[in-house]
Amino acid sequence: MERYCYALDLVDDPELIAEYERWHSSENGWPEIRESILDAHILSMEIYRTGNRLFMIMEVSDEFSATRKAEMDASNPKVQEWEQLMWRFQKPLPWAKEGEKWLPMQRIFDLKAQ
């Protein structure tokens, strides 16, 4: 099992942030999105927020491939619809390249390594 951590910003608007959180609640999440995550061999995914900054932790199986996940997402109309909807709330980090959303974070400390 491997862990990936990503960051992304939201548009700094309390109403949009609240709506974004509503879309991510268990009663409003799209089952097709959950299915696409599980089909990609993602075992666990959590998203945390502070202010308008998001932090996502994914734990994946050995079969996970980020390239394959991107290919699967690109060919899935429902995932593309979800991504378009989410762009209403999200904004790239200042150092993101054109079209990039969630950016990988670099681990700089590990208590177990001390």
Rank of each mutant, 00 (worst) to 15 (best):
E2K: 15
R3Q: 12
Y4S: 04
A7Y: 08
A7N: 05
L8G: 00
V11T: 10
D13R: 08
I17E: 02
I17F: 06
A18V: 04
A18W: 10
A18N: 10
E19K: 12
E19W: 09
E19I: 03
Y20E: 00
Y20G: 00
E21G: 04
R22P: 07
R22S: 12
S25P: 03
S26R: 15
E27P: 02
N28A: 13
W30V: 03
P31N: 06
E32P: 07
E35W: 08
S36Q: 11
I37P: 10
L38Y: 12
L38D: 11
D39Q: 15
M45L: 14
I47P: 05
Y48D: 10
R49I: 01
T50L: 11
T50E: 11
G51C: 03
G51E: 02
N52W: 03
R53G: 00
L54T: 01
F55H: 02
M56W: 10
M56I: 06
I57D: 05
M58D: 06
E59D: 14
S61R: 04
S61D: 14
S61A: 08
S65V: 04
A66T: 07
A66S: 14
T67V: 14
T67D: 14
R68F: 00
K69N: 10
A70T: 09
A70H: 12
E71F: 01
E71S: 09
M72F: 07
A74E: 13
S75F: 03
N76E: 04
N76A: 09
K78T: 14
Q80C: 12
E81W: 10
E81Q: 12
E81P: 02
W82I: 02
E83A: 13
Q84K: 14
L85V: 11
R88W: 04
Q90N: 09
Q90G: 04
K91I: 10
K91M: 11
P92Y: 09
L93A: 07
P94G: 07
K97D: 13
G99A: 03
K101E: 08
K101S: 14
L103Y: 02
Q106P: 00
Q106A: 12
I108G: 00
I108K: 01
F109I: 11
F109Y: 15
D110M: 05
L111W: 15
L111P: 02
Q114M: 12
